[in-house]
């Protein structure tokens, strides 16, 4: 029995990025299909965040192509990149990055405002989904780290992006809050969202469908987490 062909959401083709003389990414290629959860792993400085930034339209590749939902991100102008970020991707950062003077619901509405029109009722529902129905008017400084990260998740999801990019979303959380956030990510995955998650943690990496491991800017290996005992490994030289 053959599986139905799923839509390609991400196509990275020989993506390279240099900062001056530093080669942060070196001809990285992989594909992600819709609904996949990919963990991007590797030691510090291996190019994980650079890869996420390129796919999120925050940076441009020096060479190669990064195609997300049919859009070659590297060819977009500044205005098109802005539109791309609003329409196609939802970011979750390790440092949460909420606007400190906006309440939880306003932080979610801000993403709506940049996308199209702010809808408070929908923003409230998004926060209720992540268990923050009673924290709507709290400022980030009045929320715990886990709560802030859940606000960031609600913000990332509010515009129904094609791709959720999470850069070590549990890196600053205690175990209890990490579990909460991971449960949410599992739920999102079950609901069919495409997730690229950067992590140092093997335990978290194993939750994903595949682990893409980077080393010195190069794609070291792609591991399919279908069966821990008989894991499928695609080696890259």
């Amino acid at each position: 029995m053959t599986e139905p062909v799923k839509d390609l959401v991400v196509q990275a083709e020989l993506v390279s990025k240099t900062f001056g003389t530093l080669r942060a990414l070196d001809r990285v290629s992989f594909q992600v299909v819709a609904g996949e959860w990919i963990a991007i792993m590797g030691p510090s400085g291996s190019g994980k965040t650079t890869l996420i930034n390129i796919l999120g339209g925050l940076d441009r590749p020096t060479s190669g192509r990064a195609i997300v939902d049919g859009v070659d991100v590297g060819t977009l102008g500044e205005r098109e990149l802005t539109r791309y970020r609003a329409d196609k991707v939802g970011f979750v950062f390790q440092q949460f990055h909420l606007v400190p003077y906006l309440s939880a619901v306003e932080n979610v509405m801000l993403a709506q405002y940049f996308h199209s029109v702010a809808d408070e009722a929908e923003a409230v529902r998004a926060l209720q989904r992540v268990g923050l129905g009673d924290r709507l008017v709290h400022l980030p400084s009045q929320l715990s780290g886990g709560e802030q990260q859940r606000v960031a998740l609600a913000r990332a999801l509010i515009n129904h992006p094609k791709l959720i990019l999470a850069d070590e979303p549990t890196g600053n959380l205690d175990q209890a809050n990490e579990d909460l956030v991971l449960d949410l990510l599992r739920d999102l995955h079950s609901a069919g969202h495409t997730i690229l998650l950067v992590t140092h943690s093997l335990a978290i990496g194993r939750l994903a469908d595949r682990r893409i491991e980077l080393a010195h800017g190069r794609l070291a290996q792609i591991i399919f987490n279908v069966d821990e005992n008989h894991k499928a490994v695609q080696e890259h030289s």
Partner: peptide, 16 residues
């Protein structure tokens, strides 16, 4: 500076 960087990352245009 940080807020502007974040807003642009969220898809906020320079004008907005």
């Amino acid at each position: 500076r940080r807020d502007v960087g974040l807003m642009k990352a969220l898809g906020g245009s320079v004008q907005r």
